[in-house]
Amino acid sequence: MLFFVGLGLYDERDISLKGLEIVRSADAVYAEFYTSRLMGTSIDRLERLYGRKMKILSRPEIEGEPEWIEEARERNVALLVAGDPMISTTHLDLRLRAIEMGIDTRVIHASNIASAAPGITGLQNYRFGRSATVPFPHTVRGKRILSSTPYDAVKDNLSRDLHTLLYLDIQDGRFMSINEAADILIEVSDGRGDDGFASHLAVGIARAGSEDMCVRAGALSDLRRYSFGPPLHVLVIPGRLHFMEAKALRILAGAAEELLSGYEL
């Protein structure tokens, strides 16, 4: 059996009891942390609490030809991932490949930012549209390239009065901040002639699941100057607000009354 075990939002204590039992009883334990990270812990702390040594898999070992997966034909193998195992298409692809190879699989779900963000912000979970990732800019032939995909996702959701959860890029040990994401979105919107986008309501969440979590609502242009502290960060762009959502953003995220008045349904 190949077990996909979610580790939750922030540190080694976020794993479920069911997940912990599987990790402790598995014949082999692997982990990958390039799709997401547990920022409140370390490999050493994970191993000490779980009572197991684990091998950290690289991106090629997950997305290429995963030779390690063959072990699951005859043994119980646990793959540990931050958040919930099936939020990432990388892990879904791996599970489907395992099934096609005739290997049994089982998923142990855990808390993740997609399920936590509505509770943190007070925004209703059924009013979130499609999410997107804000990637770091890249350079092609000396030209700086920005992805318009997150901006397009936001605008599509706004046209239907839906909220947008934006994941922020992780790349080579770099963690995009809410400030950087806001700068990118505003630069893309300015390029589209959407001058009012910078004043749109936004909510930044930093270190979800931790005791020093930070959540702040304000105009997007204001959030790019706010100090959210260490990663991981995500950004929410709300659509129109139910009166309870507006109240929640005021109380939970410090949104100014005058800013919210233009967004209530």
Rank of each mutant, 00 (worst) to 15 (best):
S189K: 10
S227C: 10
Y167S: 06
R216N: 04
E70S: 10
G119H: 03
P66S: 00
K18R: 15
A217F: 08
L241D: 01
S115G: 11
L46H: 09
R59K: 14
D194L: 02
N179Q: 13
T35R: 10
G102L: 09
L166V: 12
I108E: 12
R225L: 14
F33M: 15
I113V: 15
L80Y: 03
E258F: 06
D169C: 05
G6Y: 10
A202W: 07
E264P: 07
L57D: 00
P85L: 11
P238W: 08
A248Y: 01
I87L: 15
Y167K: 08
E70L: 08
G204D: 11
G204L: 12
V81Y: 06
P137Y: 09
G8T: 09
R95V: 05
A246L: 09
D169G: 02
V23I: 12
G204C: 07
Y263F: 09
G83K: 14
R73H: 13
S261M: 13
R97F: 02
M101N: 07
G142W: 01
I99V: 15
R97L: 12
M54H: 02
F4H: 03
Y50V: 03
Y126M: 07
E12F: 01
L168P: 00
E70P: 06
R37K: 14
R97T: 02
A256C: 03
T35A: 04
L38Y: 05
E211G: 14
E47Q: 06
F228W: 13
A82W: 07
Y34F: 11
S25W: 02
S199H: 04
G119A: 10
K143H: 04
V234I: 15
T35I: 10
L92H: 11
T41K: 11
R240Y: 07
R225W: 06
L46W: 05
S177F: 08
I103S: 10
L94T: 02
E47G: 00
L94P: 05
S189Q: 03
V134Y: 11
E245Q: 07
L17A: 08
E32N: 05
I69L: 15
S221Y: 00
L38D: 09
M39G: 12
N125S: 13
D84S: 10
H242Q: 15
D222G: 02
A181L: 13
E258M: 00
L249G: 10
A219T: 14
A219K: 15
Y10T: 06
D194I: 05
G254W: 10
S36R: 11
E245A: 08
I184D: 00
A182I: 04
A206H: 08
E32D: 08
R106P: 00
L201R: 11
I178L: 05
R127W: 04
E257C: 11
T139M: 02
I205Y: 10
A181D: 07
A256K: 15
S25N: 03
L259K: 07
V236W: 06
V154A: 12
D27C: 13
V154M: 03
S36M: 04
D183Y: 13
S159D: 06
Y30L: 04
I251L: 12
F128L: 06
K155A: 15
I99Q: 13
E65S: 13
Y226L: 11
I145G: 00
S25F: 01
D156Q: 15
T41M: 07
R52S: 07
R37C: 04
H242R: 15
R24D: 02
R13T: 11
G254M: 14
M86C: 09
R174F: 01
R144M: 14
G129M: 04
